[in-house]
């Protein structure tokens, strides 16, 4: 059976596409699936940095597409998980060096070999976006609770739907429950009423994310991290498991004590 090809996109930059790909990909690999991640952000690659694999790059996506190397040569295996690998983007080329048709073929070939193929989409809606989306059956749209990010997500969902990609899911990244409660940030319900696509998960704002990115170790390897747990739940839901969306549990000191006493 062919695997799933999933593109992670957002429109706006800096909302956490790469972090999402790295974490969900790693989590699914931990669940013993064969996972391949493609960095489609040609010219601005950084999935390799987040995965901590920067120094192992020899061949890249464009080399594969142009036939300078075999697919297996460009795939970089993860440091911990042998069933996880990534194809890095070319840093010295531009986005129009490949076309959607080539990308589609590559994704199809990879889907034969792997259970999950993730495509890390560049920001924007130009050529790079079209390339990244071409081979995907499913799309995950990442947004943050900011008006500008939501506006761009809305545009991207419109473009995906116009491209006849109907299986679209939403991840809300960097939600700060405290600010939502004070009414300073849009809540999950507000965002969903506007975007009207099924929610795959909510990732709370956390410093751990920055730290793990800088270290090059995906957050899901770390136990006890809230954001990491959110990502692993997202991976489970993507895998078809029925995991309820996390409720907010940070409701003050007394509630925590109460819960502690109960458990």
């Amino acid at each position: 059976m062919a695997g799933k090809t999933i593109v992670v996109t957002s429109g706006k930059g800096g909302v956490g596409k790469t972090t999402t790909v790295a974490n969900i990909g790693t989590m699914l690999a931990k669940k013993k699936y064969n996972v391949c991640m493609i960095d489609a952000d040609i010219g601005l690659r950084n999935l390799d940095v987040v995965m901590g694999l920067e120094n192992r790059i020899v061949y890249n996506l464009i080399d594969v597409i142009e036939g300078n190397c075999r697919k297996a040569q460009a795939m970089i295996r993860d440091r911990k998980l042998t069933n996880l690998c990534m194809i890095p983007a070319a840093q010295t080329r531009e986005k129009n060096a490949i076309n959607p048709e080539q990308m589609k073929n590559l994704c199809q070939e990879l889907a034969e070999e792997f259970d999950f193929v993730f495509i890390d989409c560049p920001a924007g809606i130009e050529q790079g976006f079209k390339n990244a989306v071409a081979g995907a059956q499913t799309a995950i749209v990442v947004t943050t609770p900011e008006v500008s990010a939501i506006r761009d997500a809305d545009r991207v969902i419109g473009l995906l739907e116009a491209g006849l990609l109907r299986d679209i899911h939403l991840i809300i990244n960097r939600l700060n429950q405290r600010m939502v409660k004070k009414g300073d940030m849009m809540s999950t319900a507000d965002i969903l009423s506007l975007l009207a696509v099924p929610l795959l998960g909510v990732v709370p704002e956390s410093e751990e994310v920055v730290i793990s990115t800088n270290r090059g170790v995906p957050l899901v390897h770390q136990k006890g991290s809230k954001a990491g747990r959110a990502f692993s739940n997202i991976a489970s839901r993507l895998n078809g498991e029925d995991v309820p969306i996390e409720e907010d549990k940070s409701d003050g000191f007394f509630a925590k004590v109460k819960r502690f006493m109960q458990s």
Binding site: R151, D152, D154, R155, G158, L159, E161, L194, A196
Partner: peptide, 25 residues
């Protein structure tokens, strides 16, 4: 018969009925 998302432009020579939302943009 769908939600008009950001970036959509609908132009009608007569009346226009949208069965869905018209989002910002």
């Amino acid at each position: 018969r769908s939600t008009c998302r950001s970036g959509t432009l609908v132009e009608s020579p007569a009346d226009c009925v949208v069965l869905g939302d018209v989002n910002p943009g």
